[in-house]
């Protein structure tokens, strides 16, 4: 039992309070808000064939919405293969896909190590599922292909403080970028695919404090919104109208399949927009 009769001193060290200036406070609470239409994605730059030594490669850059010219997400993807499997591995009637997603140590606010952490492995698994549906695996028996993605810069604005945004939602944006760039690199490497696959993210966001209503936006930036209730990342094959990977996460109000379906629909929409860029960029390589 704690001694309650004595007046104990404070347990931890105490520091006299420092009062903030009025100005500072207003500056801090100021938040970059979304200026794009809810159904518009950010501008992206995609170029294939950037790494000559690899069989296929692509580079993807997505702008931040805050300022012009400052890029948010920078991804580089290299594809090595198809190449024959090592002698020790068993026969496979299909191409063996292996995906590596790695954040550069300096990609995010919090420095990341050189070893892949569980979240990066998780991204790799998602990416693998998304791509496996797109490639025609039985065209390349007894061969393997490695897809290596480095996230050179994560989608995190230096201007925002740690309080704004949430890492977990940024992972979805990163994944959708990974899917798009990997699809471009696969096409660059000349590996047979049924369709180009692109990633898209849609989120249910809430703005405007307690009275605010939730709305669905595509390609969300977590720091632009007060809270993200739910989000989903979709890998979609536009000409076949098929989903190869779906990752939904969040807190859905009870039994509301309506909102969920709408989210998926919007995710598909975002993916279609990204796919347009992808197809155009592949066309450009010929020129």
């Amino acid at each position: 039992m704690a001694d309650r009769r004595r007046v104990n001193g404070p347990v931890g060290a105490t520091i006299p309070p420092v009062f903030e200036d009025e100005e500072v406070q207003t500056q801090e609470t100021q938040r970059v808000t979304r200026s794009r239409a809810p159904n518009g994605i950010r501008k992206m730059y995609l170029k294939t064939g950037v790494t000559p030594s690899a069989s296929g490669s692509a580079y993807l850059e997505i702008e931040t919405s805050g300022k012009d010219g400052v890029s948010g997400l920078k991804l580089s993807c290299t594809v090595h293969g198809p190449r024959s499997l090592p002698r020790s591995s068993p026969f496979s009637p299909h191409i063996i896909l292996s995906t590596h997603v790695k954040f550069a140590p300096f990609a995010t606010k919090q420095r990341r190590g050189y070893l892949r952490d569980p979240s990066e492995r998780d991204l790799g698994t998602h990416l693998e599922a998304a791509l496996r549906g797109a490639i025609i695996a039985d065209r390349w028996p007894k061969s393997g292909v490695d897809i290596i993605i480095s996230i050179i810069e994560g989608d995190q604005d230096r201007e925002t403080s740690g309080a704004q945004g949430d890492d977990t939602w940024d992972m979805m944006n990163a994944l959708s970028g990974c899917i798009t760039v990997a699809s471009a690199a696969l096409a660059d490497a000349g590996i047979d695919c049924v369709d180009t696959v692109a990633g898209g993210v849609a989120a249910l966001v809430k703005d405007g404090g307690e009275t605010g209503t939730a709305r669905i936006v595509i390609d969300p930036i977590s720091s632009e919104h007060e809270s993200i209730e739910a989000a989903c990342c979709i890998a979609y094959l536009p000409t076949r109208d098929e989903i190869t990977n779906l990752w939904f996460k969040g807190d859905m109000p009870d039994h509301d399949m309506g909102i969920y379906s709408e989210l998926v629909q919007q995710g598909i929409q975002a993916s279609k927009l990204a796919n347009r860029v992808l197809v155009e960029s592949l066309g450009e390589t010929v020129k």
Partner: peptide, 20 residues
């Protein structure tokens, strides 16, 4: 009971790598 949907993930089905 009323249920909340918390997460959905596709699991890569092994069917795609089966011998034809």
């Amino acid at each position: 009971r009323s249920l909340r949907l918390l997460s959905v993930r596709t699991v890569d089905p092994p069917s795609r790598v089966t011998p034809p």
